[in-house]
Structures are given as structure tokens and as C-alpha cells.
Design a protein around this nucleic acid. Structure first.
Lengths: 111, 111
DNA sequence: TGTATTAGTTACCATTTCGTTACCATTATT
DNA sequence: AATAATGGTAACGAAATGGTAACTAATACA
């Protein structure tokens, strides 16, 4: 999945742009994890088995950079960082739900 | 999304599955190119500048394997091969349209 | 004979993405 | 003094993806 928008073609295709935002191996699951709850870094990691911290960090950074989630850091020891869906991220929910329905049906039909 | 429950986190997330089908650098553009017309290999290549024949072949094969398009080969010289959206592919159109609308708005808002 | 045409394939390389392991800073607790 | 807790980084490598250039088969046509 190509996520950045340096390529002109991709910049002009809104569908590619959107797939770039929510695609990749882990982003759908991360967004699902945050769909209705604010969560700490460690909570997300615990709820998504097999994701490495490095990749989780990277994906969260991208999601934040792209405005889909927001990150709040508390100056405590040990550190606390909370991630929350932004309004932009929430505006995606209906489409993601439709994608989910379609994907489920597709999986069933293909079996 | 059903992925990240403890018992079946091996199971693939339907949203990821769908993104896998239509994601990547060129598939959205290919699907757009075929949305209402049957087209020959060369026509698709001509309408998508900068795509290499190798990658176009690969992506068309995957789209066909996944049931989103169908391929019809005519035994002529020089060869003729036509690609058409399948019913499954067409059933994606409403979602892709929603993605397009959302993506357009996102691009506007981010400028 | 030589060239054009179509829909690819093959070999090879570059870039992107994903994964593993070890490590860090700071404080409270033992 | 050692350890645990949290939210990361750094170094490295493997795998997936994308790109380039050369090549192919079969026939029509000049």
C-alpha cells in the first residue's frame, strides 16, 4: 500500500487517497480499536496482538499526521499517552461500516 | 470489524480484506477505468499513463482472481483481450463512490 | 524480406513496508 | 541498589511491492 501522496496520480484520485489513509496491514484494526473509546498506547498494543511497538508507533503517527486521530500526552511518570478518534476520523465511520458489511458478505460468498 | 477479539485474531478483518482487494497503487484507477465500459488491455494501458505493462498485467490478474473483473480472450492475431467489471465488482460501486466523495472533501479540507 | 501489431513474460533492481531485538528516560517501590 | 512501569527509539534485516528494459508468438501487410 502506498500511503504518501508524492505521486501525482494518487493525489488526483480521491479513492487512492482514502485508501492511503486507512489502508495497510494494521490501520483498520487500530481505527476499530479507537472507534468509540479513548485508549492509551499500551491498551491499544494489548488489544492488537502481534503488532510490534515500532509499527504501532509508526501507524499512530501517520493516523495523527493525517488528522484521523489525536494524541494527548500527559507529563507523568511513568508516561501516559492517550489516543482518540478525531471528528474527521469519526466522519469515516459510516463508510467503514459499509466496507465491513461488504467485506463480510464477500468472505461468505467466496467460501 | 471482527478481527481483534482474543479468540479469532487470526481471522482476517473484512475491512482489511476489502482494502486488500481494491488497494494498492493502481487498482482504484483500473476499476475506475472499467466502471462502465469493457476495455481491451491496450485501452486500459493508454488511459492510465505511467503504468507499466508488467504491473498492469499483475493487477488485472489479481482483480480477476478476486472476482472483481472478468477477462475474455479472443483467439485472433494480433491478440485481443477484453476486461469487464463483474457483478461482484459492480456491487462495490456505491462504496467506491462514497469513498470518492469523502476523499474529495478530505482533500479540500486539508488544503 | 522486413516491419507493425497486441498482449503479454522474464530477469533484474529499487523502494516501501513490516518485523525483531535491544535499548532509553524517569520515578516509585521494594 | 535493583526492579517495574510506560511509551517509545535505533539498528538491522526480510518480505512485499513497484519499475525498467528486453524479449516473445503469430499473422497481415508493404
Amino acid at each position: 500500500m502506498v500511503t504518501n501522496t508524492k505521486n501525482n496520480h494518487e493525489m488526483k484520485c480521491p479513492v487512492s487517497a482514502m485508501i492511503g489513509l486507512i489502508g495497510g496491514k494494521w490501520k483498520p484494526i487500530i481505527l476499530y480499536c479507537l472507534r468509540s473509546e479513548t485508549r492509551r498506547f499500551g491498551e491499544i498494543a494489548a488489544r492488537i496482538p502481534h503488532i510490534s511497538r515500532k509499527v504501532l508507533t509508526e501507524q499512530l503517527k501517520e493516523l495523527e499526521r493525517d488528522g484521523l486521530i489525536s494524541r494527548q500526552q500527559f507529563n507523568e511518570i511513568p508516561p501516559r499517552v492517550e489516543y482518540t478518534m478525531s471528528e474527521v476520523g469519526k466522519s469515516l465511520s459510516p463508510i467503514i461500516q459499509e466496507m465491513e458489511k461488504w467485506g463480510q458478505q464477500y468472505i461468505i460468498d467466496r467460501q
